[in-house]
Design a protein around this nucleic acid. Sequence first.
RNA 1: GCUCCGGUAGUGUAGCCCGGCCAAUCAUUUCGGCCUUUCAAGCCGAAGACUCGGGUUCAAAUCCCGGCCGGAGCACCA
Length: 458
Amino acid sequence: MRFAPNPNGPPTLGSARGIIVNSEYVKKYGGKFIIRFDDTDPVKKRPMPEAYGWYLEDCTWLGAQPDLVITASERVDQYYPIAEELIRRGGAYVCGCAQVVFKEHKDKGIECEHRDQTVEQNLDLWRQMLDGRMPEGGAVLRVKTDMHHKDPAIRDWPAFRIVTASHPLVGSKYRVWPLLDFESAVEDHLQGTTHIIRGKDLADSGSRQRYLYGYLGWEYPQVIHWGRIKIHQFGSFSTSKLRKAIEAGEYTGWEDPRVPTVRAMRCRGIRPEALRRFMIDLGVGETDISISMDSIYAENRKIIDPEANRRFFVWEPVALEIEGDVPALARAPLHPTADRGFREIPAGKRLFICKSDLAGLQVGDNIRLKDLCNVEITSLEPAQARFLGKDMGKRTKIIQWAPVDGPKVRVMKPDGMDEGVGEAGIAEELGKVVQFERYGFVRVNSVGETIVANFAHR
RNA sequence: GCUCCGGUAGUGUAGCCCGGCCAAUCAUUUCGGCCUUUCAAGCCGAAGACUCGGGUUCAAAUCCCGGCCGGAGCACCA
């Protein structure tokens, strides 16, 4: 099995599906999981040098360590002898038609004059392509299929073209570059690929590539196609679009919580196992699907809920003055069910509560400040209350609070940000996932003057 | 225009190949209830689907034909 990305950005959730499902089949049935970088276009889909490493990192994080990593751009000279053999067997010809001309021939099912060239003529022209006597755009090497094939998409397809631009990885080492159908077909054979899962946008590739396999006497792998995947919360996205948006400064980078990359998920505290379960559950259907992050979040919650410590965070804080014997210190459990000890939070007569909580209160209401005490609201503006006692008593509304000298906390969310004050202990959770009570799960990303956390989900 | 591929609850998914055990699985979602020092989690319950029309058959989600709807390919992109 293989996963064959173009490294023009880091893996997205769409890539994650390919990585996870392919590697899962290998885990289940044996075989090898290969990452193959299809980076044979130095211009239109120009690869990004950093992205190669990003793929490997994210694969490992996703629990899909590849058995082999190959990079097409470093192997182009291995493709040339195969092209030559193909020409010798009469399976390909050098076509000098202008693009628009050939397009018309294709649509009408007309064979061009280059198709009848002899093997010797083709070999000579091929060498001219290789050694620079042929200009860029001057000719392509075409695989002979059938110009009367009922599906125009299959008719004599191009296998190599001349590109003089420098490649980010191998520079100007090659001037004749293979196109995907050729490169992919040859590598699949070279690596002994038995099963391919790929997007249904490549469904016609099989028909094209079978001609090549036929000329060379190779056996074509089993293929499954799957539909497009869309995510409600992110809409449709493409790596190149994201890249533009990031370069334009719309996002802080590839790890921005608003972006559907694997690394952004990691920085939000989404666990690889949650992604794996989700992607495996999706299966390999051919239907286009439009999924919701909710399912991923639900999987993730099952994993992190038992592990995440609880902390107080008050967004849009407003001060509440309390009259009476408010304890100076609160002892709150780090986790509601697991026996993990307590955290101590300084309290006192002046505390922060959420503006939205205050908005739901009326004078005379009794509320519980969680793990601290009960109070009765005596005034709304300014917010004032009276200490009632430390005991819980009968059921009352329970809200969280924060000390007035607590650290500033900023939570970056997929759809904005929240700012407020939290308990000092949050700083101890750097890099970890915690639950801000009555708010949601976050990953603490940086600790400084302001603590910055990325929102995972509720 | 030519070609190919799909269509099960709001969203995914199982079942379809090899027709009956399907008054259709599981998850998510939404809504109730229980529990609870979080509007979390957990537990209990409810809601909600075979695209339509023909045909074959004792019997169709499953097989056949047609319509409708959706997606993809027809690049010197991947």
